[in-house]
Simulated assay, not measured.
Amino acid sequence: MPVSSFIPRAIGLVVTIGFSVAAGYWGQPLVSNNTDAINTIVTVFSILAGFLIAVITFLGDPGARGWDQLQLDKKSMEAKLWRHEVLFYLYLVTLGLALFMFVLPEEYEKTTLWLERLFVGSAVFVFLASFALPQSLSALQMERYQSKLDDDLPQVLKDLHKEE
């Protein structure tokens, strides 16, 4: 990854983590003993997890490209799939935290407090991270479009580009 794109991503990650930690700590009272809020978050993340599986399936489809193009795109595709898989697992972690909050006996107040903080922080982090999905999907579609366009370019124009 070029340094020019790494720095903004790293800054974004640090800001997102910071915001998520703060939201988890101070937003915990919003979910404490509020099953409607927890159920809403669980529903949203269940839907997002299902959507993300469809996205991962879509990303993994190589389309009608030749072997050479597939080989060139392999590392890039692996990186994109890895990022989406991590996001999917973070959705599952958020859902798992909600499950633990429901099954933990009431006498474990301190543990419940920290589970709620982790749940809110995780939900905020994963929600903010999800905003990168549309850009990622758009970039992928444009890459596929450009690849198809290059493949279907008339030979006369291909020869012109070789001379330049």
Score class of each variant (00 low, 15 high):
M1E: 05
V3F: 15
S5W: 09
F6S: 11
F6A: 12
I7P: 12
P8F: 15
P8A: 13
R9L: 13
R9T: 11
A10W: 11
G12F: 09
G12R: 13
L13C: 06
L13T: 14
L13N: 08
L13Y: 13
V15E: 12
I17G: 03
S20F: 07
A23R: 02
G24T: 06
G24S: 11
Y25T: 08
Y25M: 00
W26F: 10
Q28W: 09
Q28C: 01
Q28M: 07
V31Y: 13
T35S: 12
D36L: 10
A37E: 08
I38E: 10
I38V: 14
N39K: 14
N39V: 04
T40M: 09
T40C: 00
T43N: 02
V44Y: 03
V44E: 01
F45R: 02
S46E: 07
S46T: 10
I47A: 12
F51V: 08
L52F: 01
A54E: 08
V55T: 01
I56R: 05
G60V: 06
P62M: 10
P62S: 12
A64H: 13
L70C: 03
K74V: 00
K74G: 01
K75F: 05
E78W: 02
A79V: 07
A79E: 06
A79I: 03
K80C: 01
W82A: 01
V86W: 02
V86L: 11
L87F: 02
L90F: 09
V93W: 10
V93I: 13
T94F: 07
L97S: 10
L99C: 03
V103S: 08
P105V: 14
P105N: 15
E106Y: 04
E107Y: 13
E107Q: 13
Y108P: 00
E109G: 03
T111W: 08
W114D: 05
W114H: 09
W114I: 08
F119T: 03
G121E: 09
S122W: 05
V124N: 09
V124F: 12
V126D: 10
L128G: 04
A129Y: 14
S130P: 07
F131T: 11
F131D: 08
A132V: 06
A132D: 12
A132C: 11
L133W: 00
S136A: 05
A139Y: 00
Q141I: 00
R144L: 05
R144G: 04
Y145T: 12
Y145G: 06
Y145I: 11
Q146P: 07
S147P: 01
K148M: 09
D150Y: 06
D151T: 08
D152L: 13
D152H: 09
L153Y: 05
L153S: 09
P154S: 09
P154R: 07
Q155V: 04
V156D: 12
V156W: 10
K158I: 06
K158S: 07
D159V: 09
L160E: 15
H161S: 14
